[in-house]
Amino acid sequence: MTPKKKRNIRIIILVVVVLIVVARVILPYVVLTYLNKTLADMKGYRGHVEDVDIALVRGAYTIDSIYLNKVDTVHNRETPFFAAKAIDLSVEWKALFHGSIVGELIFERPMVRFTKDKVEPKQIRNDSSGFKQLLDDFMPLEVNRVEVNDAQLQYKDEFSKPKVDISLTHAYALAKNLRNSYDSTALLPASLALHADLYEGKLSVNARLNPLADEPTFDVNAELKNTNLVKLNEFFQAYAKIDVNKGRFGLYIEVAAKQGKFTGYVKPLIQDLDVLGKEDRKDNVFQKLWEGVVGTVGTIFKNQSKDQIATKVEFKGNLKNPDTNVWTAIYNVLENAFIQALQPSIDREINIASVDTKKEEKKNFLQKIFGKKDDKDKKEDEKKEKNKKKS
């Protein structure tokens, strides 16, 4: 190789190195400017990113200290909606080894707050869609993996009396294979696991799903154990006008869906419920009367041997027209109150294979009296009516 060629190669290498260094220096500023401009242009929101760090080697960038506030256009008042210590956006290498170029998101200590407004009953849905649009703007790739560390989910109602402020804390969530970049032959290739704290209680959700199916296809188990109802007293006072002096709450859910149909059950459990006590002395006579009614209902529907209130509501139907039978709920409450107490755990009887079962539902006593008649019953009634006219 001639000295001239060697010199040209050195120059090319030097130019490439300089370009990489310049890009590494300038790129964070360019990305930061773009992100803050995107946040400034969001209708109904105002936000800011403190800093951006670029990691070219692993194809990633990290957003440092971001917040997004809702803006009241009438009073120009800002309400916190989302914040995070950091968000890492990168290429998912596991999917890359399977031939898919997709991304992953990692949230560190995020906070999402839903605030109830007087004239915005659909605000939570609107906030969620706005947040999804924001992530789509920030992440150029389709997201296949999401991890959330130490999250907090809040709900606030500034207009209730008393004001309501409840939170789901220390949440960890991991969603994998959302774009089916591997395990493509599986019926439910994606997974979601979530764990969180709710006022001394523990929430856990485990799900298998197919986000790319034409119709919702999933198998979900969820349970909430041992939540202290006393710590939710602001919520009960605002919306139910009662004081809870003692009680623990649990909730167990299994649901599966495919081909437009779903089946499952929900099983709430309340233990050691007490809505009357010495703490109620300052309540007026109407407040005491309402709490007395609630306390009496709790006593009637309570399994005396285990001091718990529980029921199990089974449901199934079409996702376009879900039909949860209220009479089944009432019957199960009465049955559990006087016959048996439900075990505080998931029954593990619902899965993706359960959705296609076509067993004829047996009607309980209340359903026979008050429930709506199905097509078979209507035909039998019409047949009887015709026979009466003939006779």
Rank of each mutant, 00 (worst) to 15 (best):
V57W: 15
R248H: 06
F218W: 05
K359G: 03
K378G: 07
D381M: 09
R10A: 06
D127W: 00
L14Q: 09
D243R: 15
T62P: 13
V57Q: 14
E215I: 04
V205R: 11
I339H: 15
I300F: 10
V285T: 07
K363F: 02
S129Q: 11
Q123T: 07
A171T: 12
H195F: 13
N144L: 14
I300E: 12
D183S: 10
K202S: 13
D117E: 08
D136E: 15
D88E: 11
F138V: 10
F218N: 09
Y182S: 12
V205N: 08
I369W: 04
A213P: 02
L269R: 09
T2L: 06
M111I: 06
M42W: 07
Q152E: 07
K37T: 13
T73K: 15
I330F: 06
E108P: 15
S65Y: 10
F97K: 14
V355M: 04
L194I: 10
Q367P: 02
L212I: 12
L178C: 05
G260I: 12
W93T: 01
F315Y: 04
D374W: 01
K312W: 02
R179C: 14
K306S: 09
V74T: 10
V333N: 05
G47Y: 08
L35G: 11
E335T: 00
T115S: 08
L89W: 12
K241N: 07
L276H: 08
L135S: 02
S184L: 08
N245V: 09
G44Y: 02
W327R: 04
F236Q: 08
F338V: 04
Q304E: 10
Y155T: 09
V16A: 10
L19A: 11
R179L: 11
H195W: 10
R248V: 08
G201Y: 02
E92Y: 12
P344R: 03
K116E: 04
I124A: 06
E382G: 11
Q123W: 01
H48Q: 07
V266E: 00
P322Y: 12
E200S: 14
A173M: 14
I124M: 09
I242Y: 10
N210I: 05
I66N: 05
I300A: 15
A337G: 05
E234I: 11
D219E: 07
I300D: 14
A257Q: 02
G250Y: 00
L168R: 01
V266D: 00
V74P: 00
I346N: 03
F82W: 05
L188P: 01
V326K: 08
K241P: 00
E349Q: 01
I101F: 09
R281G: 05
R179D: 12
V244W: 05
V21L: 15
K161A: 12
K132E: 09
K316H: 10
G201K: 01
D381S: 05
D51Q: 11
V266T: 03
G250Q: 01
G277T: 03
V17N: 03
H98V: 11
D157S: 02
A207H: 05
N284Q: 00
L187I: 08
L251E: 00
I101C: 02
Q340A: 13
S345H: 10
